[in-house]
Amino acid sequence: MRTTLHVNGKLVEVDVEPRLTLADCLRHELRLTGTHVGCEHGVCGACTIIVDGQAVRSCLVLAVQADGASIQTVEGLAGGDALGPLQTAFRRHHGLQCGFCTPGMLMTAHALLQAEPEASEARIREVLSGNLCRCTGYVGIVKALLDARSAYARPHTREAR
């Protein structure tokens, strides 16, 4: 089926089988392999991307369901080659080891901090509890988010849209 996606600011058209998940579409049709697939049943969170401004699990969305949607993946998180503030904070606080959960963590964190730049540690742990990491014990990830909050702070208004 012909499906149109806006991925990281670019309009792309793909022809996909209905059974193809959005995760597999991004990875294998569009070659955006930064989005990882850890369980294919919606538990691990590694495949989390941002669809129309919200964090969702791309293994639990059919590509055809995303027709017309605006999608952001880890490849679109920073402009150009430099790391963005969230990525820099992950590096500084050793918020990753094997890197497999990292894209999903980053996208969940990005959506959270965009909506709630003042998220508390408890709130961070609550929202990111849906993203499993087997390496770090999470301590560095939490520190990274706490540190990155300032980069998301909005000086004047709390209204995002």
């Binding site: 990875r27 070659r31 955006l32 392999t33 930064g34 989005t35 990882h36 697939v37 993946t73 880890v74 490849e75 998180l77 920073a78 080659d81 790391l83 990525q87 992950f90 590096r91 500084r92 050793h94 990753l96 890197g99 497999f100 990292t102 894209p103 980053l106």
Partner: peptide
């Protein structure tokens, strides 16, 4: 020293090459 990791530069940008990423 707590040297920041070299591998992070690719992992944080979605440029790791895990086996299923190989074209």
């Amino acid at each position: 020293k707590p040297i920041e990791r070299l591998e992070d530069l690719r992992f944080l940008r979605g440029r790791g090459q895990y086996v299923d990423d190989l074209e």
